[in-house]
């Protein structure tokens, strides 16, 4: 039953991504000033939003883990952290591609870009820490690191409003904005990335669950001395 639900969510996520591609490539108009490169916006902003969402999951689960020592929360935090790294990499790849056309340079030490890079290093540290060791101290340290990352995430968001920078602000209360024809592809892209994140998180969580079950089984077998017979 769970497998069927996961398959359904995965298929819907895949179809939504295809629909987003169709809308972005075939239906959305070309921007008057920037031309074709503006289409990166639909994937760049959606992955940035998913990056925040994913790290939100990591932070909440880490707090639950620190407060209650919940294994499930820890597994979910680890799974979501790896996905945050994936979406952060997408943001850091699509951003410079857009920047090359818009600013003439792949990178600029703009407040938002710098804070995103800082966030990426925190996420990578978390993933590395969890990947290298599964001890209790490392798990607690990683949970604390996720809270530090949660403090950096709002800085990325407000940096554009608070400090001068080159990064454009498109969707704000004042000025900027999208042409009406550009909203449908943008909304579909956001929905597609959200559902894709949900599906990937579910897959990754199952993987983590089975990984721990195998470790548990191996431990039980070793405790009974069954594994020693196979040893050379």
């Amino acid at each position: 039953m769970k497998h069927a639900a996961l398959t359904l969510v995965t298929i819907i996520a895949g179809l939504l991504v295809l629909a987003a591609l169709c809308l972005v490539f075939l239906c959305s108009p070309v921007d008057a000033n920037m031309g074709i490169v503006q289409k990166i916006f639909y994937f760049h902003v959606s992955s940035a939003y998913t990056m925040y969402l994913s790290w939100g999951v990591v932070t909440v689960c880490s707090i639950v883990f620190l407060a209650r020592r919940s294994e499930r929360a820890d597994m979910l935090a680890r799974s979501a952290a790896e996905l945050t790294l994936v979406f952060t990499v997408i943001v850091l790849v699509t951003g410079p591609l857009w920047g090359r056309k818009s600013w003439g340079a792949y990178w600029s030490w703009d407040p938002r870009l710098t804070s995103t890079l800082l966030f990426a290093t925190i996420v990578a540290s978390y993933a590395l820490l969890r990947g290298l060791s599964s001890g209790e101290a490392e798990r607690r340290f990683a949970a604390a690191l996720s809270i530090l990352g949660a403090c950096v995430a709002p800085i990325i968001h407000i940096s554009v409003q608070k400090w001068r920078g080159q990064h454009p602000t498109v969707i704000t209360g004042k000025g900027g904005g999208l042409a009406p024809e550009m909203w449908p592809p943008f909304i579909v892209s956001l929905a597609a990335f959200t559902l894709l994140f949900a599906a990937l998180l579910w897959h990754r969580y199952r993987l983590e669950e089975n990984r721990r079950r195998i470790a548990d089984l191996a431990e039980r077998i070793a405790a009974r001395g069954l594994g020693e017979e196979d040893a050379p």
């Binding site: 409003q161 001068r164 602000t169 000025g175 900027g176």
Partner: peptide, 26 residues
């Protein structure tokens, strides 16, 4: 000072406008 900078930043916000006859297409 931060608020003044913020207002200045908002003035530079980008608007994406659909081109009637795009100069660049696939």
């Amino acid at each position: 000072a931060a608020r003044a900078q913020s207002d200045a930043a908002d003035d530079r916000s980008t608007a994406f406008v659909a081109a009637e006859a795009p100069s660049e297409t696939f």
